[in-house]
Each structure stands twice: as C-alpha cells, then as structure tokens.
C-alpha cells in the first residue's frame, strides 16, 4: 500500500494543477506544517481532530485519494495498537490520542508538501536540491526493487528488510551520479 502512495505522490508532481506550485501555496504549506505540529500539541482534542479531518479532505480534494485513505488507515491502526496497550497498562489515554493526532496531521502535511514541491523550486539551496532529487530518485527505484523481490517470491518481514537494505545501498550509489549531473549543470555540491 505504501508503494502505491509513493507512486501517487511522485506522479502528482507531473500532473498537478499549476496553482499548487505557486508562491502563495508554498507559504500556505509552510504555515500548515507548523500548524500540524503545534495544534495537536497545545489545542483541545476536538480542534486537532478538526485539523486532521480538514487536512485529509484537502488531500482528497487535490486528487491524492490514496494518500488520504492511507493517512486515515495508519491513524486507525496506530490508535488501535497504542490504545489497547495503554488500556492494558493503565496508561495515559489522552496522551495517546494526542500522539496519534500529531502523527496523522504531520503525515498528511508531509504528503502534501512532497506531492506539491518540484525539485526546481529548491534550486536555490544546492544541498536541499540534491537531497530532494536523491530522495525522489531513490523512491522511484524502491518501487522497482520491491517489484523484483516480490517477483522472486519474497514476503513478510524478510521482504521489507531486503527492500530497505537494497534501497539504502542504491541511494548512496545514486548520489555520486546525481552529483555529476548537478555539477554538469553548473551547481557546485560538496560531497
């Protein structure tokens, strides 16, 4: 499921409406990111719940349906696990709720930012530019690697580990060729 979300996020940057790449939208995104962390920490639960709900709706409205579903789905699972653990151990239920809301509000803004930020918008900051490029290129290949391991009949935890290890090795290898490609375009990046 997470792989199809990754594909949706990366694909969105190609077909998204122009407006989401505008300057105002970028400022709004940064504001949202701050809010998504601050609100669940300080505001009453009802307000945070409202924020998370509107963020999920925003994702869905923008056309990121799988991401919206994924946010709700992970929140539900996370809450279920933490709630039952806290319940059995007589833990602090309110804190659990807050944590879950924090996790889902920041997850949805991170998805929002990742899907509406093109590398070209970060060109002024070479390190950030390189990072976003390596990140996107690695994610794209992770999808391929995952397919290869699936095709070889790998499954379960073994499958996840194999994919994670292979992806890390690959992102290191990719970095040097991407550094070449940035340098060839006149951007100095220190390795």
């Amino acid at each position: 499921m997470i792989l199809s979300v990754v594909q949706e996020v990366l694909g969105y940057r190609v077909k998204a409406p122009r407006i989401v790449f505008s300057k105002w939208f970028s400022i709004a995104k940064i504001a949202l990111f701050i809010l998504s962390i601050a609100v669940p920490v300080v505001a009453p639960t009802a307000v945070s719940l409202g924020l998370v709900a509107s963020l999920v709706i925003l994702l869905a409205v923008l056309g990121l349906r799988r991401s919206a579903v994924y946010t709700v789905f992970t929140a539900a699972i996370l809450y279920l696990i933490m709630f039952s653990t806290a319940f059995l151990l007589h833990g602090d239920l309110e804190r659990i709720t807050r944590l879950t809301l924090l996790a889902s509000s920041s997850l949805s803004t991170i998805i929002l930012i990742a899907s509406t930020t093109k590398p070209s918008m970060l060109r002024r900051w070479p390190t950030l530019y390189l990072f976003s490029i390596v990140f996107a290129n690695t994610l794209k290949e992770v999808v391929d690697i995952a397919t290869v391991y699936r095709a070889r009949g790998s499954g379960g935890l073994r499958y996840v580990l194999q994919v994670v290890v292979a992806s890390m090795a690959m992102s290191i290898a990719r970095t040097s060729t991407l550094v070449d490609s940035l340098k060839a375009r006149g951007i100095e990046v220190t390795e």
Partner: peptide, 14 residues
C-alpha cells in the same frame, strides 16, 4: 558533459 546512463542523471519532475 553528457553522461552514459541517462536514468542516473534526471533531476526534475517533468
């Protein structure tokens, strides 16, 4: 400078 493997050098979304 045009590198050998095209896929290893793409940096943008389109």
């Amino acid at each position: 400078y045009c590198w050998q493997n095209p896929y290893y050098g793409f940096v943008e979304a389109t």
